[in-house]
């Protein structure tokens, strides 16, 4: 009897999750695609900000360093949710003012772009710290040697600093990527149609809360575990030729 109820419950759940219209599977997948787009964009933007921020913190003048310290401290102490709201309103205000000044009307901002801008600034603060630590871990002699040979700054960055620091930075960056994928869920609160919001809409219109939230959890988990594997590979590649940190284990 119990088995029968379980089976029927399971088939109901499968029907709800199916990809064709009576089911909500395609909505969830569309949300997942949006989430991944935002996460990729924000992670990339965070990397760019982080690279400049790390260089500014390490080699910049006193004002640059103080400003960057304020940026990283404030961003890391204030909840992402509050930052998302502030940056979202500031961003839309600025763009609307700019477009009105140039003679256009109000602009409709795409959710994906806004999400990338907001999460990218948050990610940038964390990436600054990760990359700063990684650059500091590179033996200074290597950078000095390149300078002594008269290597231009950009070439030095491209051919010495970045390859040498990759191994140290990858674990921290992997963590940041996981934070980026999970932070996309916060955009649900500002009304972006990413995975968590699609899930909630599906759940509240079918009343099958457990089915949909568990399915979304499974999707997130697949993404996290999959990226764990990928980043493991990247770390192995970035560390090739370096002695193992674990001292021979594994």
């Amino acid at each position: 009897m119990v088995l029968l109820i379980d089976l029927s419950g399971l088939s109901d759940a499968l029907e709800l999750l199916s990809l064709s219209p009576p089911g909500w599977g395609s909505n969830l997948l569309r949300g997942l695609v949006h989430s991944l787009q935002i996460a990729f964009g924000a992670f990339g933007m965070g990397l760019v900000i982080g690279l400049f921020g790390a260089y500014g913190k390490l080699y910049g003048g006193p004002i640059t360093r103080d400003l960057l310290a304020i940026y990283t401290t404030v961003i890391r102490a204030v909840p992402e949710l509050v930052l998302i709201l502030i940056l979202y309103y500031v961003g839309t205000d600025l763009i609307n003012k700019a477009s009105q000044a140039m003679g256009y009307g109000r602009v409709e901002i795409s959710g994906v772009i806004a999400g990338i801008w907001v999460l990218g600034i948050v990610q940038g603060a964390y990436a600054t710290e990760v990359l700063r630590g990684a650059i500091k871990a590179v033996p200074p002699g290597q950078i000095e040697a390149a300078r002594a040979f008269g290597m231009p700054t950009l070439t030095l960055m491209r051919r010495v600093t970045i390859p040498a620091m990759m191994g140290f930075a990858t674990p921290g960056l992997a963590n940041l990527w996981l934070i980026a994928t999970k932070d996309t869920a916060l955009l649900a609160i500002v009304g972006f149609n990413e995975l968590t919001l699609e899930t909630r809409q599906a759940a509240s219109s079918t009343r099958a809360y457990f089915t949909f939230f568990l399915a979304a959890g499974a999707l997130y988990l697949i993404v996290t575990l999959g990226s764990g594997v990928v980043f493991g590979r990247i770390e192995k590649w970035a560390r090739r030729g370096q002695p193992s940190l674990r001292g021979g284990g594994r």
Binding site: L178, K182, D183, T184, A185, L186, A188, I189, T196, T199, R200, A203, S204, R207, Y209, F210, F213, L214, A216, G217, Y220, L221, T224, L225
Partner: peptide, 23 residues
């Protein structure tokens, strides 16, 4: 630990509140 760390907290909160709350 893997499940908690691998899924967004917002999803966990909604799962518990709406899921258990409807159950």
């Amino acid at each position: 630990c893997t499940i908690i760390r691998g899924t967004p907290l917002l999803l966990q909160i909604w799962l518990l509140y709406y899921g258990l709350g409807s159950l």
